[in-house]
């Protein structure tokens, strides 16, 4: 299995994540798209790890998961806080409120 395949796959997932983050208005979905981006990175790292026969990359993946978990904890708390105030998680509504 050439490494290119994994490269293309994870870049595709990454770009889908980017698209999602740019397209959607729902803050939770944007956040999920970002998780998708992180997973694409994880997959690529695992593939490289196999290619170089180096377990450091897998450790890196492990740490990305750790950080993602921490970010999700904070992020969802923030989203819930915003939701409590405006009863919406629509980023466009937030932009409108500013003016």
């Amino acid at each position: 299995m050439p490494i290119q395949y994994y490269l293309f796959l994870s870049l595709a997932l990454f770009c889908i994540g980017v698209m999602g983050a740019l397209m959607r208005r729902n803050a939770i979905i944007i956040f999920m798209s970002i998780e998708l981006m992180l997973n694409a990175v994880n997959l690529l790292l695992a593939a490289f790890s196999k290619m170089y026969n180096d377990s450091a990359a897998q450790i890196f993946v492990f740490f990305i998961m750790v950080v993602a978990a921490a970010e999700v904890a904070v992020g969802l708390a923030i989203i819930v806080m915003v939701y409590r105030k405006v009863h919406s998680v629509d980023v466009n509504i937030l932009n409108r409120l500013k003016h």
Binding site: F14, G17, V18, A21, A27, I30, F31, I34, M37, L38, A40, V41, L44, I64, V67, E71, V74, G75, I78, I79, M81, V82, V91, L94, L97, K98
Partner: peptide, 19 residues
């Protein structure tokens, strides 16, 4: 709102950093 915006942008840029 600032917090949410900062979080989303920050997490997004983290994804790019990792890539």
């Amino acid at each position: 709102e600032a917090s949410l915006k900062y979080l989303l942008m920050g997490a997004f840029s983290t994804g790019i950093l990792l890539m």
